[in-house]
Design a protein around this nucleic acid. Sequence first.
DNA 1: GTAACTTACTTCAAATTTTGAAGTAAAATT
DNA 2: AATTTTACTTCAAAATTTGAAGTAAGTTAC
Lengths: 190, 190
Amino acid sequence: MIQKLLHEGVEVETSIDGYDAADFPEITAEKQGHRHPVHTVVVTHFELARMIERVNRRFASLLRTELTKLGIEDVGPAQAMVLLAIGDVELSVGELLDRGHYIGSNISYYLKQLADGGYIDRVASQRDKRSARIRLTDKGEQLCANLRNAGGAYNRVLARDDDDLRNLEIAFQTLHRLELVWGNAARYGI
Amino acid sequence: MIQKLLHEGVEVETSIDGYDAADFPEITAEKQGHRHPVHTVVVTHFELARMIERVNRRFASLLRTELTKLGIEDVGPAQAMVLLAIGDVELSVGELLDRGHYIGSNISYYLKQLADGGYIDRVASQRDKRSARIRLTDKGEQLCANLRNAGGAYNRVLARDDDDLRNLEIAFQTLHRLELVWGNAARYGI
DNA sequence: GTAACTTACTTCAAATTTTGAAGTAAAATT
DNA sequence: AATTTTACTTCAAAATTTGAAGTAAGTTAC
């Protein structure tokens, strides 16, 4: 049964970017081993998930470094992500929840910190006084602008040519698909 | 003023499940003069990062659900990821660190919980008695097998045809590239 | 051989992030 | 007018992550 599942994944040729098959334990042993030019790697659901977890960790620490460089002490990576999620539009807490799949109390907590730090403004909506409208202050926009500015270097490294752009786009859309599949599964079962 | 630039010429191709351009405030206009046969979305660094964060969150809650279904109470999603990272080989704590880009004390903490729960065995290496060798117990292997079994359904949904396979492969490799770029940047600066 | 240094990991305490239960107030429904 | 639902907040607890300090084993330089 396990054997069968391992073959439900994607077959990948891995000479690209020289990553190491040993990074991926969910591969049948007979396929690694000898130093042949072509390895076939089976990418499963879990490998993708592990990759995503690692990449997420890396990004968070990068963001922390950037924040430190900017001398920002009252905003952590998680809060910075919230600021970036807000972007330059005014939106309600509910919309923000949808954007990041956060849990309500979590966002509420971050928004409080960000409001205390002067990064966002909260105004009760005229239409619906239950609904808080959120928007970046100038300080918040400045921070986002600085982060984006620092991010430009990464964009240039990551998107060198058309091929890179295509791959980034495909990665993005594929992740979006994962988001939907995993999200729907969580709510309605697969 | 910098970020006003970021909203030029955004065209979103919505072939996948109709996601909304408004979800993604950070699309750049940094396209060079090459000919693109069709409209292209230029995905930035931060958009990818936000997507990855969301997907990661979704996966963690899915994993939590699966663990609950299996009646497992002493293993959370983070620990389950560690078990999956170990896979079916025996390795040292250091190797495990590399696999997940964890921080040492973090893994140590998880390994303690997993050892207490009987999911892993720890043996001091003969060669080097500082080095702890880690391996799944039968209980640990059983849990991984159950998780993989449940995961089979997702693999089938995600990888329906060759196109899906190709896209998953590209996503995986692109994430690996992100991992390298972000990781190296964190250590050596970009 | 041994003193100093490095590696491999653990421990602990603190910070950060996430979760869930309970609450408030406004809007919508009955 | 009473009830229910929505939109959010608060608070306390749990889970996760981090960093500083510690231990013990291996390595290197004298």
